[in-house]
Simulated assay, not measured.
Amino acid sequence: MSLVPSLAAAQDGYPSKPIRYIVPFPPGGLTDVMARLIAQSTGMAIKQSVLVDNRAGASANLGADLAAKSSPDGYTWLAITLAHAVNQSLFANLPYSLEKSLAPVAHLATSPLVLVVNESNPARSVADLLVQAQAKRLNCGSSGNGTPPHLGMELFALNAKIEVSHIPYKGGAPSLNDLLGSQLDFIVSNLPESSTYVKAGKLRALAVTSARRHPLLPDVPTFAEAGLPGVELENWTGLMMPAGTPKAVIDRVSAEAIKAVTSKEISERVGAMGFTSTGLGPAEFGELIKKDVARWREIVKARNIQTG
């Protein structure tokens, strides 16, 4: 009991030094953009610097493992996506457990994916792209094995009954660069990462993976409208800390992160990029993680999705 006052005092003094916000993807991608917005806004609210630390590699597991093994003192934050829920079944010997090694803090936003091709590609629809796929095996890039773009590609290929050569990259931005350079045939990309290029006319969007058309791309049909109703998928991004972090610290950071992401300024700003702000707290976020880990365990097994 003598430790309680000192623990409370330590939490009352939080944060007393800069915070590291690990992003397990390269700069410029969906997760990085959202993390930097939250770092800036939340850092101002708690009156401390929140420094983004990009640690890409190992299909986003490198940064996640680094965070999971960090001290549970509130000074290490981790940006995660749907990819981390999928990785729990995609990799047999992960050095960390998403549900046991890390604690949910806040679910921040969701976004659909969009099938995009280079503007020089003659395909004007999903049907056109499928004609190309009958003539040759298409190359598709993704932000890494097991990431939402990879899963979107797998769902598309399965429902369309085509064979695709998957080329994983260390993030969405590098894969888009190769699509822009016509080194890839298509990508099922995170919408916030590719919408700017679509609007600029450098890429052409053929279908979105959401249940309804997206307001940023109102003329682009859903996959269901394009004749492939099984291709439905939305990515999400959230914030976690090492398991064992004091509840008071988690609750404070959660409240500030949710306040930031659901504010009019940020929700409108990220909405313009393709995100929909959610702002779920630790309990709701924890339940969402459990459901997605279970859902994708079944899909990975049923569809034999491989890491290589």
Score class of each variant (00 low, 15 high):
138 L>F: 06
144 G>N: 01
147 T>A: 14
176 L>F: 06
144 G>A: 11
133 A>E: 10
201 G>C: 05
146 G>R: 04
179 L>K: 05
146 G>N: 08
183 Q>P: 00
142 S>R: 01
167 I>H: 14
171 G>E: 02
154 E>D: 10
164 V>F: 10
187 I>A: 12
151 L>I: 15
194 S>E: 06
192 P>R: 04
190 N>W: 00
142 S>P: 05
160 A>V: 07
138 L>S: 08
171 G>D: 00
182 S>Y: 01
182 S>L: 08
186 F>R: 03
152 G>F: 03
135 A>M: 12
167 I>M: 12
179 L>Y: 10
200 A>N: 10
159 N>D: 14
175 S>L: 03
186 F>Q: 03
172 G>M: 10
188 V>A: 06
180 L>I: 07
138 L>D: 11
189 S>Y: 01
178 D>T: 15
193 E>M: 13
191 L>Y: 05
175 S>C: 12
137 R>Q: 14
197 Y>N: 13
167 I>D: 09
176 L>M: 15
148 P>M: 02
153 M>H: 01
136 K>L: 05
176 L>N: 10
172 G>A: 13
199 K>E: 10
170 K>D: 14
151 L>E: 06
153 M>C: 15
182 S>P: 01
146 G>M: 03
189 S>C: 09
152 G>I: 04
168 P>S: 03
186 F>D: 00
194 S>A: 15
192 P>C: 10
199 K>A: 14
168 P>C: 00
159 N>Y: 12
147 T>I: 03
141 G>T: 05
142 S>T: 11
154 E>L: 06
143 S>F: 04
164 V>W: 13
197 Y>Q: 12
164 V>L: 07
183 Q>V: 00
187 I>P: 00
151 L>K: 03
201 G>A: 01
184 L>W: 06
